[in-house]
Design a protein around this nucleic acid. Structure first.
Lengths: 225, 225
DNA sequence: CATCGTTGAATTGTTCAACACTTGACAAGT
DNA sequence: ACTTGTCAAGTGTTGAACAATTCAACGATG
């Protein structure tokens, strides 16, 4: 009788969500310029509403605004990747180290994300697999029990995922991460937190390296005319 | 050509800055309801522009939006304070521990903030003193050399400062923090990072306790269970 | 007396159309 | 080649309108 939440969301928020989804899915690739009028009419909203939506996404880091020059889908630089992984290490490793038995409600969700990931890999649905992968890591942050931190981490992951759509195409071995995530989950659920942190740390190193290589070869050193 | 100094900011951003300043100065106290039309006309901007400004501040956490119910200056709860200080400990202590000699460019700035703080305390300018206090801690975050982290920390400090304007009034001993900050600076510049972290940790505990007491007595009708 | 619709004013959400300003490209002139 | 002028396209901003929602006051009904 008491529904969780009634459909009370502003149109601007919905427009932002749709746009966010398109960016995170790789439908809108980094660097793509977005014009207000065509986008607004394609979503069936007014230009002002679309501007509010774009304002939201630009504050999330997904869009980059240049005044009077329009907005474009943000493009991750190597420095960005380095920054984001620095933060991931700083946040995820203490998270698993602080995992206590009273946090057990997170374990089933971790298992769910793990299984979803494996299912997607078997189905060759890599975009969805990336989602489950990142969801798995987001759940680790829950151990901190800090809503602000979760939100911050979520925006980080959003930026990262935007760059990861580039990885999909040349992802030669998408299933290689399964045993790693399995191991993390297993060590975590059995309380071997130090070992878990070690595996996680290595996993993050590998992930950063792979993404950096793709980004680096994607848009190489700026041409100095 | 020096293009970096040209004053090219959108009106919406400027409106947001003005409003942010008023909130952080305590001119607009937590809980104050803000109506679009009066505010817009008082700043001499249109309603749409003011809406964009409010959107910015709500995403920064300074304003709280209830759909169709208006926006109000956010109010820190005890849980918020706990969250924010949890994050401050998580960010500031590793920051000083990772302080290396190559970060020496931060030290003069820390000294500047320290001296500004002492100057304000002597002049009984507590609002400005709080600014220098928080600036001192923001500078510590610089040791992480991570721009995203600095931005995140800055929004945290913004929320905190909003709650601290309540402290000003009953601040019985505003100069008590001088020796603590001095000590932190001294230990930091002499490389005694472990000791520095210990002092900083204690300082944060004290600060949280003081703020919690004020918040708790400010709106006590808060049953948490 | 209390509870439940109803009404209506006030405020926000959204749209629309217009204008000012900036930018980038192209053409003309030197 | 370099500068300058022009122009179209796009963003920034405004003001007015309408739709949707909230909230409080008001009765009506039991």
């Amino acid at each position: 009788m008491d529904r969780s939440q009634i459909h009370r969301v502003s149109v601007a928020d919905q427009a932002a969500s749709i746009l966010r989804q398109r960016i995170l899915n790789g439908e809108l690739r980094p660097g793509t310029a977005l014009q207000e009028v065509p986008l607004a009419s394609s979503l069936g909203v007014s230009r002002n509403t679309m501007r509010e939506a774009m304002r939201i996404l630009s504050l999330e880091g997904l869009l980059k605004r240049s005044i009077h020059r329009g907005v474009a889908v943000s493009q991750l630089s190597l420095k960005d990747v380095k920054e984001i992984y620095h933060l991931r290490r700083m946040l995820e490793i203490p998270a698993v180290l602080s995992a206590k038995s009273r946090h057990e409600d997170v374990l089933p969700e971790l298992r769910g994300a793990l299984e979803g990931y494996e299912r997607c890999v078997r189905a060759r649905d890599w975009a969805q697999a990336v989602s489950f992968d990142l969801q798995f890591h987001s759940l680790l942050i829950r151990f901190h029990q800090n809503r602000r931190l979760e939100n911050f981490y979520q925006t980080l992951i959003g930026e990262l995922r935007m760059g990861m759509v580039l990885v999909d195409r040349r992802h030669d071995d998408p299933g290689a991460l399964i045993p790693v995530h399995r191991k993390i989950y297993q060590l975590l659920s059995s309380g071997k937190l130090k070992d878990c942190a070690a595996v996680l740390s290595q996993h993050l190193d590998d992930s950063e390296l792979r993404l950096s290589q793709v980004i680096g070869s994607s848009h190489p050193a700026k041409r100095t005319k």
